[in-house]
Design a protein around this nucleic acid. Structure first.
Lengths: 221, 221
DNA sequence: CTGTCATTCAACAATTCTATTGAATGACGA
DNA sequence: TCGTCATTCAATAGAATTGTTGAATGACAG
């Protein structure tokens, strides 16, 4: 290692963090960990990746101070080290959304086809919920719902949305949310519900953003 | 390229941005560009790097939508594409500051030795300036000062701080700022001024953050 | 103590990133 | 049109990153 002045040393540290964010799989891991802490194996299962691969990426994230590890018996429980990680993710996403034409292309080509309406903002949702005007569904898997969800939301995992919507007597508009602003599941859910004749919209972003905004979070006992 | 679902495609785009931020030299380039747009050659001179190297890194930053290029005669003028780039930089820096022990070590080992006092916040500075209680100096090079500075600030490039402080009749506390929160120059300036018996403090961060906060910026005519 | 199992480590080839060099491009002024 | 000059491109070698494999570690249960 060459001699560095403090300025270069600091830039090097900052670049460690950015470098750690610079891999699609690691970003996906962060989004999953934002739903709640997980073991290596559980995370590997969620992402359909070899355990060793996930373990290595977790090491990389840990070296960058992005995740923290805590041993729990024979498991090692990983979780996001800090809420500032979410802001960094959001900031990077923001640059990409504004500046990369490819993002726009992907969004138009896939997401817009499934949701041509303006999403519901967090503020709007709170008003609608208070006035009892909407049914809020959390389309994430059961385990993620259990770790924390918007108070009043019903857990309807994506695969069960069709069955649920025919069974339940829904007289109100449905609002769906999942892991984050571009989480595919809520788009799919809204598309499926509309195809069945329901009135449905997406929440503008997901659980981690809700929590980061300081809003109340419900946990399954 | 393998077949990707939209989720993976989006993560890949986000990772392009993060990857572009994942190099110390590129971060330094961003901090310089945040002072104002520059040509390839000018930037290369500032960073003491070969022109071709800077050019290539600029291409990388441009592909990631971080900088934008604009031809101006025989020069190509590069500047930050968006203010969101600064928030992304700040967010990454924030994670590093909170989570990486090495950052703390560098800061303690170098910066604290030069400035053991709490920096002046932007709000404080505005009050102090309004009441005429401080002399504000911008210790960046002349060209960067010209592109935008805090109204009321005097440009005293780092190398001229000693001479200036003996010449000028200073009866007030001095506040120094430069390129950003960890810009070495303002630490050096404060250390030099204190060694000469003056009362001096740093502004908590630099010009880009001042501007990003929506505060007024003065430009040399 | 021993077996089991979650996790990590070590080593490898494949790929990507990096800095350097020198040549190519393209805009300006004469 | 021609020379000059800022910038970019192309090619290279060297370094770092990636995913895979299988073995090592370390904690728990019996």
């Amino acid at each position: 290692m060459s001699i560095r002045n403090p300025k270069q040393a600091l830039y090097e540290q900052f670049s460690i963090v950015a470098k750690a964010l610079g891999h699609p799989l690691r970003l996906e891991m962060i989004e999953h960990l934002a739903q709640g802490g997980r073991s290596v194996e559980a995370l590997a299962a969620k992402l359909s990746q070899p355990v060793a691969n996930i373990s290595q990426h977790l090491q990389a994230l840990r070296r960058a101070g992005i995740v923290s590890a805590e041993r729990d018996g024979k498991f090692v429980h990983y979780s996001l080290a800090d809420d500032s990680v979410l802001s960094a993710f959001a900031a990077v996403r923001g640059v990409a959304e504004r500046q990369l034409a490819e993002v726009d292309r992907i969004v138009r080509g896939y997401f817009d086809a499934r949701d041509d309406m303006r999403p519901v903002t967090r503020d709007e949702l709170q008003t609608l919920m208070r006035d009892g005007l909407v049914t809020l569904i959390d389309v994430r898997p059961k385990d993620e719902f259990a770790l924390g969800h918007v108070p009043g939301a019903i857990n309807v995992p994506l695969g069960k949305v069709r069955a649920w919507s025919t069974d339940a007597a829904i007289g109100r508009e449905i609002v769906a949310y999942c892991r984050g602003p571009w989480c595919v599941m809520s788009f799919e859910a809204v598309a499926a519900l509309r195809a069945l004749g329901h009135s449905a919209r997406r929440l503008e972003d997901g659980m981690p953003e809700w929590k980061a905004a300081g809003l109340p979070v419900a946990v399954v006992a």
